[in-house]
Write a protein that binds this DNA or RNA. Structure first.
Length: 352
DNA sequence: CACTCGTGGAG
DNA sequence: TCTCCAAGAGT
């Protein structure tokens, strides 16, 4: 192979690299096993892909293990209680994924006989499955030559083709590049290979071009522009919002909690009753009590704003009824079932 | 198309 | 401390 950048990147070169360097991941059937005819479990492929949406492999590992241990099949998951699934997802973020996960499991279970559809169009209609995930399931679980385009693939394509159009406008162009490179042979391995390449070699910062199987075909490498690609539209600064959380503990040890509405931030999750989050939150105590304000506030950053949460605590007698929420006593209440921001408030109240 | 929707780790 | 960002989807 010549050390020039005048040829098209070859899927075979990438697959050769993947055969030697594929990461060992809990949800993955590696290239060697695949070659022996081992087929991936579509349920595990689907579950991993949902969990991996905008989420790192390191963060997903334990959740994937917990879910597949507790709910080994899509039928088992479909039969789970909503609250149990939301609690199991707590801490992983983007909670709409968990609600859609359960919806999807029930649709697959009831309308598809417990088997995931194999084709992209049908997969795309399922809750929580968009263009990327539909292609990933079709390719990885069913070896259908679909083109997967995630953040890794966007970055790899932007560099290989030295595409300077900023995202998201560049997405259709990058998708077209990716589609042309997708092979008919071993599409499942190939899909994972491009993503592995983006995750381990063609990284956002300091790409390891010296180890890259596509280096000699990479236009950005030839031009020296790989570090500045892909271009992205500048992001808005995050504003600060203020809020108040009320942590009421009954004398028997029960805590006053509230199930948040399905729509919106932390939808479907358990949380502390509180004010709206905005510029000037208003007092909204959920029960009559002597509220004490903690000296330290809970700080948390969401996707598009910073939150500074004032934490108020109170000890209330057995016979007092709350205006909002309901008392839950251990062991039915576990702090680990809360989304992180709510758990931070709890930790402060515990004297953390 | 632009916005919403979490979290933790890396630099 | 602050920014970026990670196997995106829904509205």
């Amino acid at each position: 192979m010549r050390e020039t950048a005048c040829h098209i990147p070859d899927a075979g070169d990438l697959l050769d690299w993947y055969d030697r360097h594929a990461r060992d991941l809990p949800w993955r059937v590696g290239p060697a096993a695949r070659a022996r005819g081992v087929a991936p479990d579509p349920y595990r492929v689907w579950l991993s892909e949902i969990m991996l949406q905008q989420t790192t492999v390191a963060a997903v590992r334990d959740y994937f293990h917990a879910f597949t241990t507790r709910w080994p099949t899509v039928e088992a998951l479909a039969a789970a209680e909503d609250g149990d699934v939301m609690a199991a997802w707590a801490g992983l973020g983007y909670y709409a994924r968990a609600r859609n996960l359960l919806k999807c499991a029930r649709v697959v279970s009831e309308d598809h006989g417990g088997r995931f559809p194999r084709d992209h169009a049908t997969l795309l209609r399922l809750p929580g499955i968009g263009p990327y995930t539909a292609a990933a399931i079709a390719a990885i679980a069913f070896d259908d030559p679909q083109t997967v385009v995630d953040g890794n693939v966007e970055r790899v394509m932007a560099r290989v083709f030295d595409e300077h159009t900023p995202l998201p406008a560049a997405k259709p162009i990058l998708t077209e590049h990716a589609a042309r490179l997708t092979p008919e042979a071993r599409p499942g391995d190939y899909a994972q290979a491009v993503m592995d390449l983006g995750a381990t070699i063609c990284t956002p910062r300091r790409p390891a071009c010296g180890l890259c199987p596509w280096r000699t075909a990479c236009a950005a490498w030839a031009a020296g522009t790989m570090a500045e690609l892909p271009k992205k539209a500048p992001k808005a600064r995050k504003p600060v919002r203020l809020g108040i959380a009320y942590l009421a503990r009954r004398v028997d040890g029960a805590w006053l909690l509230e199930r948040r509405p399905d729509k919106g931030l932390l939808g479907g999750m358990l949380g502390w009753p509180g004010s709206d989050w905005g510029a000037a939150p208003e007092e909204a105590p959920p029960i009559r009590a002597e509220w004490k304000t903690l000296s330290e506030e809970a700080r948390h950053t969401f996707t598009h704003f910073h939150l500074r949460l004032t934490v108020k605590t109170a000890l209330v007698p057995m016979d007092r009824q709350p205006g909002r929420g309901e008392f839950i006593e251990p062991p039915d209440f576990r702090p680990a079932d809360l989304p992180t921001v709510m758990r931070k408030a709890f930790d402060l109240a515990q004297g953390g």
